[in-house]
Structures are given as structure tokens and as C-alpha cells.
Amino acid sequence: MIDFILQNPILSALLALGGLSAAFGAILGFAAVKYKVEGDPLVERIDALLPQTQCGQCGHPGCKPYAQAIVNGEDINKCPPGGQATINALADLLDVPAPTLDTEHGEYSAVKKVAFIREDECIGCTKCIQACPTDAILGAAKQMHTVIIDECTGCDLCVEPCPVDCIDMVPLPTNIDSWKWALPATNQKPVFHVVANLIATDRRNTSDDKAA
């Protein structure tokens, strides 16, 4: 063996390298089959960032198809319900500069809305039930329909098919549970009229004035 290597250094080197590449190739090939990832993980990750309203405003029938389209090179600024926050998150994930929302697909609305069926006007045609992407409308043929508020994504898709136009999109009311503190107003705009109050002694003077 050693004699052979000594006598044919080039050949033995070639053999060794060839053997190594064959072995690693086999390992890699095995790993590719054994640890194959089902589905596209990137699509899943993009889908997780989308708001899941399933509204179709991006031009795709649902959030997942849009996620797939983004993977295929579509713009990331076509999701009005998600707004700039979603665009930023997507840009962060895909490591691209964040564009602004393409308003061609709709405007972002900070106020969440849900569908509301005026029940005495509903004729029970089931058209809205068929249109609802999340099965959030309850009802049956010739029976009054109603919206399950907790499941409604506010996608708007049920409004158009209604033949009697009895569906409204109403802003979700704020209750004790959904209320939250707002950021202090000064966060938004700098206050200039306080120049006279800049230092602590100024402040003390004004309060003394008031007291007096």
C-alpha cells in the first residue's frame, strides 16, 4: 500500500480525492433525500407575517397565495390591511428596502372593521356565506344570517354579493378589554411653546405666580 503510494504519488492522490468526493457526494445525496423539507419554508414565514384577512386586495385569492407570489418575485407592498408594519416586517425578512404601500390596492385603515348584517333586511340568500373566506357568517337558505364578530377579518368580500345590500362594515367598538393607553401626544409633534419653561426655575416661578 505504502509502496504503491510512494511509487505513484499522483495517481494515489487522484484516487484519494476521487474517493473522498464520492463519499461526501453520497452523504450529501442521502441527506438531501432523508432530510428533505416539505413545502417552501419561506412561503410559510411570509404567510406568518401577512394579516390573514384573506381579503384578496392584493389580487390573490388569500394570504397564502400572495405569500407564494412574493416568493416568486412579486412586490411586497400590496397588502393594505397589513399596512406599513407588514411591509416593514416583510422587507426585514426578505432583506430588501421597504417600499411604501401601493395604494392602487387600497388604503390602510388603522380602525379595524367588521361586517354587520342588518338582520331584518336579510333575505337568507346565502351569497355572503359563500363569499366569506373564513366561514365567519352563520345562516342557512331562507334563514337570517349573522356575522361571528370574533371570526370576521373585515375583508369586505361579503358586502358586494349581497343582493339587498344589508351588510355594513362597522368599526369595531373599543371596550374595556381592547382599550389601551395611547402614546403621549408629544411623541408625534415637538412642542415649541414651552421655551419659557425650559429650566426648573422657570417652572417654579410660573407655579408661584399662579399661587399668588
Binding site: P51, Q52, Q54, P133, T134, K180, P184
Partner: peptide, 30 residues
């Protein structure tokens, strides 16, 4: 007030995430 607002936003985001997951599930089921 900043912290309270931020806490509220985080809680709200969590709720929204939960809701989005449920919507996704319902959509896929449909």
C-alpha cells in the same frame, strides 16, 4: 405612559396574531 402604551400594543398584537392564526386555519379548512 410610553410603557403602558407599548404594553397595550404588544398585548393587542398578540391577540391579533392569535386571531390571524385562527383566520388562517379557518381559511385553509374552508
Amino acid at each position: 405612559q410610553y410603557y403602558r402604551a407599548a404594553k397595550g400594543s404588544i398585548r393587542q398584537n398578540e391577540l391579533e396574531k392569535e386571531k390571524a392564526d385562527r383566520s388562517r386555519q379557518r381559511f385553509e379548512f374552508r
